[in-house]
Design a protein around this nucleic acid. Sequence first.
DNA 1: CAGTGGTCTAGACCACACT
DNA 2: GTGTGGTCTAGACCACTGC
Lengths: 264, 264
Amino acid sequence: MRAPSQASYAQGAVGPLANADVGTPAFSPLYQQIKQLILQSLQGGEWRPGELIPSEIDLATRYGVSQGTVRKAIDELATDNLLVRRQGRGTYVATHAQRQVQHRFLRLHADAAASGVSSPGQRHVIECKKMRASADVARTLGMRSGDAVWQVQRVLSFEQIPTIYEALWLPAAPFKGLTQERLTSHQGPLYGLFESAFGVRMVRAEEKIRAVLPTPEAAHWLHVTPATPLLSVERVAYTYSDQAMELRRGLYRTEHHHYRNELQ
Amino acid sequence: MRAPSQASYAQGAVGPLANADVGTPAFSPLYQQIKQLILQSLQGGEWRPGELIPSEIDLATRYGVSQGTVRKAIDELATDNLLVRRQGRGTYVATHAQRQVQHRFLRLHADAAASGVSSPGQRHVIECKKMRASADVARTLGMRSGDAVWQVQRVLSFEQIPTIYEALWLPAAPFKGLTQERLTSHQGPLYGLFESAFGVRMVRAEEKIRAVLPTPEAAHWLHVTPATPLLSVERVAYTYSDQAMELRRGLYRTEHHHYRNELQ
DNA sequence: CAGTGGTCTAGACCACACT
DNA sequence: GTGTGGTCTAGACCACTGC
């Protein structure tokens, strides 16, 4: 009745080990296998962002393990921000659309006010066009040079001051049907649109930050002189199973804002 | 025989609740109380950085709870990077001196090479002097304006290129006996010296990042023109119980390095 | 009230490190 | 072998949510 193999507690991956190659045992604890099974259900769309997943007891009987084992798997998925637990209600699939975690990935904060991100601010989409991926864009997105990608350029303003000028590239296939109109009319974070309209959920991201001088376009859109130092933020965002799904290059004005980071 | 109160599982904080004010129950789970007790032992110096703490079973009998409860407390302290678990050996107090986590708080990485921080690099201490805290330094360190603080200025170079120019301020009292000579002769991260010589362990830090142009001093020490954009990194580092113990203002050259950040 | 996640316990066994 | 942390189970009860 047990879905994962269960000879003793530290057994092989789900299903028998077919490979004769010994040396790397590749054993993983039961709760890690359960975690992978839950991840597959998330990835496969069995439970969609914002939805309630089955209770711990249900999952325990489904997978043929104890509640504690399911619990540990869910614990890790919750600390990874893939699931959200709510006592008394159940466990939900995390979403970028919920008000509490809006702009989870935007680390730019206003200097003075204690405001979170100083109101969503105004967004202006400059352009949204399909093009062929350059070599570096293709490389970071795991595609081939020349494959079709979307390129979106936009400006974010806070309190009437244009503060972020950014371009982003998306693989064309998963985002089939993207239009400038959809980008403009959509409320809330972009990643919320990606979830609801394309079923693409961004799970984590890496950023590389530098100090640079503006390009002519950036100087124009941000209303700054060519001598104004800007924060260059290059982000690669990943969906499930560490697949890169977005490259974003932003230039931030930091006269009245700062990039905030917590180290631990 | 039980140290924490133990009427039922969700009891008040350790010791009786003296305040008559009801409304905020202030209950906390047992494992949280255990976590606080362990934190006190860490803060009080009962177990020092790098040392082995008692086994889970020892702690369980000491606190009069089950091993699982101690386990959950230690789990959280381990994810907070205050403790390090090693299967088969025991649980150690984390330290900035261990090779694996050296420069845990330095997020500057070399662009090309896959090297961690591209070798420790050269350090040059420009100055170390005692002075009176300015208003803003005093505020961030939780002191009064005019209180005695150390001010240290230094330059870090990577591959012969001066890359980081930074000043840092430390409250004078906990760092009694600091000298430029000790700073210069010490090997490894500064926070390792703080641990071993002053018993001050930095637990977490917050950074505010901006793009700026160099001050004249920065331009001199970093060998850059006044028009070179630099990363301004202002760090406040905290020891146990969220007490600010260091303010650091750094200027980073980012032609060949970048500040790396992971978002999740 | 029932159902959910949250806490706590006790006991068993496994994996790892040191002696 | 001994002792450590790591995993897994079963069961009990608490706290919260919504019917």
